[in-house]
């Protein structure tokens, strides 16, 4: 007889070796996600882990969940398709700032407003790592280290948390890869919260943005309970320095899920064509 042994974080990891650089923040995110899943105790086969393209988007292969590593920028629609087709599955989406906020930016807006029950983790390192160091949508305008934009981008960065709030995400949090225990807790809460949960994780790129190691000094935990109404969250986030970690908004919108009742047969429907 099988004895149910509680799963550990290690049980959610595959034997595939990550392509990430030593010191990459994404290792900690992988650990945090697997730790969160072990804590949630959801059967592995009932979780679908979806991603797009980029360094961080490689993450599903490093777990032993059902996963989909799709094309650049389209992780959210694949994930929505999975959840809408199979409401019984727990759906997690992960990727980078370029994947989710530049090429996939439109899907981000609509995923927030569609509010399908899933959890989206952006590992934000403010750079395109896989293509070797170009500015991303979250890069500050005066970052001059890319050969593509040697004078800096000169344009304001996207602010993912404020964007998510404005677009209607139902749960919004920020974590820091240097604090994986907090990240794991945020992921547990995000998965448990109904609707679209968005978690920005500041995840340093030690190769192209070594200065991001300094984030460790910049981050600070939120000192307030999560805002539950949008106006309050907006007020707070207007003054936010971009380094407040914790749950920043926890709304109560009902998730979107079409009803699935069989009311009739195809034979009945096609009878209407009889002339």
């Amino acid at each position: 007889m099988n004895v149910q042994v509680p799963l550990t974080a290690q049980d959610f990891k595959s034997d595939v070796k990550p392509i990430w650089c030593p010191g990459c923040g994404d290792y900690a995110v992988l650990s945090a996600i697997t730790k969160a899943l072990a804590e949630l105790d959801t059967p592995r086969e009932k979780i679908a882990f979806i991603s797009g393209i980029g360094c961080s988007s490689r993450i599903p292969a490093y777990t032993n969940l059902y996963g989909f590593h799709g094309v650049h920028g389209r992780a959210l629609p694949i994930a929505a398709g999975v959840k809408l087709a199979r409401p019984d599955l727990t759906v997690i989406v992960a990727g980078g700032d370029g994947d989710g906020l530049s090429i996939g930016g439109n899907h981000f807006l609509h995923a927030c407003r569609r509010n399908v029950d899933m959890t989206y983790v952006i590992m934000d390192n403010e750079v395109y790592g896989m293509t070797k160091g170009q500015a991303s949508p979250t890069t500050s305008p005066d970052w001059c280290k890319s050969k593509l934009t040697p004078e800096g981008t000169g344009i304001s960065p996207v602010e993912p948390i404020r964007l998510a709030l404005a677009a209607g995400a139902n749960f919004i949090a920020r974590g820091f890869a240097g604090n994986p225990a907090e990240v794991a807790r945020l992921i547990v809460e995000g998965i448990a919260h109904p609707g679209f949960s968005f978690i920005q994780i500041l995840s340093p790129c030690v190769t192209y943005r070594p200065e991001e190691r300094e984030w460790k000094q910049a981050v600070h935990a939120s000192e307030t309970e999560p805002a539950q109404i949008m106006a309050e969250a907006m007020h707070r986030l207007a003054a936010d320095d971009g380094f407040t970690t914790g749950v920043l908004f926890a709304g109560n919108r009902a998730p979107f899920m079409p009803a699935r009742d069989v009311k009739t047969t195809i034979a009945d429907i096609e009878r209407k064509f009889a002339s």
Binding site: F68, L76, A80, G81, V82, R86, H107, D261, I266
Partner: peptide, 24 residues
């Protein structure tokens, strides 16, 4: 008949939602 049709935000989303539904 127990299925579902979703109006997506664009055709990029349409095809990828369909990929997700089929994968599932």
């Amino acid at each position: 008949t127990g299925g579902a049709l979703i109006q997506a935000e664009d055709e990029l989303a349409s095809i990828n939602m369909v990929i997700g539904g089929a994968f599932a």
